[in-house]
Amino acid sequence: MTNQNTPPKVIGESDCFLEVLEHVSRVTQLNRPVLVVGERGTGKELVAERLHYLSERWSKSLIKMNCAALNQELLESELFGHEAGAFTGATKRHQGRFERADGGTLFLDELATMSMRTQEKLLRFIEYGEFERVGGSTTLSADVRLVAATNVDLPQLADQGKFRHDLLDRLAFDVVTLPPLRARKEDILLLAEHYALSMCKEMGLPYFTGFSANAVQQLHSYTWPGNVRELKNVIERCISRWGENPDAIDHIQIDPFESPFRLVQPSSDTTAIQPERSSLNTIAPQPIKTNPNPDFPLDFKESVEDYEQSLIKAALEETRFNQRRAAELLGLSYHQLRGSLKKYSLLKTTPDNIEEHEH
């Protein structure tokens, strides 16, 4: 955690990461939008903070907004504000993020989730510095430096008609692309030790015992799809489980679900054991065998009716002609079964007075 008005601490010595830091330093003083691109967990928000606190706007507000956190109607209201009565529940005027960020920086994360209508309003603000509150008619202005972030290919989305090309052109005045952790091999152990020391301090442990050669090999051989965020979680969990063990950490449990008793989703071709709905299901009727190689030509309707009758007869025999229980075995309602019995004139084959026993 960084102090207010202080650039966040960054950790890394790999060439590709140092190049990114140099790139960020060059654009901090420009009052133009910056687009930060990278996989999840690579530190896009960290770059946004660095862009703000190393700029002349460092003493003003840094306002953050995750565009995926709200539906589009609420997002538009949260960004631009709304007037009282603009919609149900809007009892008073609400100041949006652009107004609150006046003189400072607005960071928009998950930009690709923004609707086309909101994109159009954002484009107008970038071009003219103007906007209107939802439900309002007064044109407002704000001096805001915009930093946006995404983990998807925006040019591809634009080509697919899912993102405005003109907005992309404005946002991409400069693009900072963050390298994934697997491309920063030199930084993996450096980051792991940093998070380990922080966790030891948080837990009140006397010292960090270090990583064994086997643990280091695990750290370097894993691809880290969640990048730095995933590494941080893995190391902190590892320290919390290792506790005050005086030996060096010899195994990194990367997957928290790893267990000999891990739940496994049954495959689609495996018949699941169904719970008994009643004692009637303890003995299931034998399935009616059908001829896999019927003699053609045949009367399709007649063959289907014959098969349906054979199923009904088998269910009745299985339940000793208890029609309600037979309907349950067939997955039918009682009235559906009664209709089929009448259709095929099977009621007369049912033993006398069986209905009286069912009631």
Rank of each mutant, 00 (worst) to 15 (best):
Q4R: 11
V10D: 01
K44D: 05
L46N: 03
E49Q: 15
Y53K: 07
S55R: 03
K60A: 14
K64W: 04
C67T: 08
L70Y: 01
N71S: 10
Q72S: 07
L74T: 06
E78A: 02
T91F: 10
Q95S: 15
F98W: 01
R100P: 01
A101S: 04
G103F: 13
L111R: 05
A112Q: 10
R117L: 10
Q119P: 09
F125L: 00
I126W: 07
E127K: 05
G129P: 08
E130F: 01
V134E: 00
G136A: 04
S137A: 05
L140Y: 03
A142V: 11
R145E: 09
V147N: 02
Q160L: 07
D174T: 11
P180S: 08
R184I: 07
E193C: 08
H194A: 12
E202H: 11
A213F: 14
N214G: 13
A215D: 03
Q218Y: 05
T223W: 06
G243V: 09
N245G: 02
H251S: 10
I252N: 02
P256F: 04
S259P: 05
S259Q: 07
T270C: 09
Q274N: 10
R277H: 05
R277W: 12
T282S: 11
T290M: 06
P292E: 13
S303Y: 02
Q309C: 15
S310E: 15
K313V: 12
L316Q: 01
E317M: 07
Q323M: 09
R324F: 08
R324E: 03
R325V: 03
E328Q: 13
H335I: 14
R338P: 00
G339P: 05
L341C: 02
E355C: 10
